[in-house]
Design a protein around this nucleic acid. Structure first.
Lengths: 121, 121
DNA sequence: CCCTTTGTTCGGTACCTGGCGAACATCAGA
DNA sequence: TCTGATGTTCGCCAGGTACCGAACAAAGGG
């Protein structure tokens, strides 16, 4: 795939941008999935949107400084940039995550095995 | 002026809505101004936008459950709904406010005396 | 009863956002 | 080298947002 056009760039981490990035339920869900600090494969993410849309969401998160993407061959692996976030906005992301979990926001985003289709039922 | 069309309605307080409301620098500035808990007069708010735009921002904040507006005669007074926010999203708003202050976001919104025009530096 | 004040609403504009499918670029494998 | 897998990018569309000035509604003051 084409090279990632937008490197994370720490200087671009502004509060309005972060909040804008996290004001979408699907993106909040992605952050929830990544919140345990583990690296997740792109194809492992399960969200009820088209591939292009998911790519878009991941780009927004990346450009807001929320996530970091590593490329390995033809695959991508995503991680939450917890340290940078905590350094720049202390306590914000944890509070955000507990609120999201408590409210059930973003629960439609999950992780699944690579070649596994949408779970029905 | 017309009656407030949209009462605060506690059930409408969702996380994405809150984040969307606070993803705008001007609205973050309004929240900063109100963050000391004091009630502020509408006309006391100083923001570099038109009256109609300021009204719009206050409406967004009100509908997101962030603020409360009281009408007294022909004037309005605005307060931050700190308790409801803290109850529903513990620690979130304080973290948000410290981050905003640290980053200087929303500093263009201030309070001034009633009949005082734009302060020109 | 008019007229001012105060904030809301309306109409309009320009831009941004989320959604999709299709096309593309890149890497790995046959 | 051709083929498949993997994400990204490209239109495109529908809807939302920020912004303004102007028109409006409501309450008070002359």
């Amino acid at each position: 795939m084409p090279a990632l056009s937008s490197p994370p760039s720490a200087g671009e981490m502004t509060l309005p941008r972060l909040l804008g990035a996290l004001s979408d339920p699907t993106r909040l869900g992605i952050v929830r999935v990544l919140s345990d600090g583990a690296e997740r494969g792109w194809g492992e993410l399960r969200a009820p949107v088209a591939k292009s849309t998911l790519s878009h969401h991941l780009k927004v998160l990346r450009e807001a400084g929320v996530t970091q993407t590593r490329q390995e061959g033809t695959r991508c692996f995503v991680t939450l940039r917890r340290d940078s976030l905590e350094a720049r906005f202390p306590g914000l992301v944890p509070a955000l995550l507990s609120a999201a979990v408590a409210d059930g926001v973003g629960a439609h985003v999950t992780v699944g095995d690579e070649d596994e289709d949408e779970v029905v039922g």
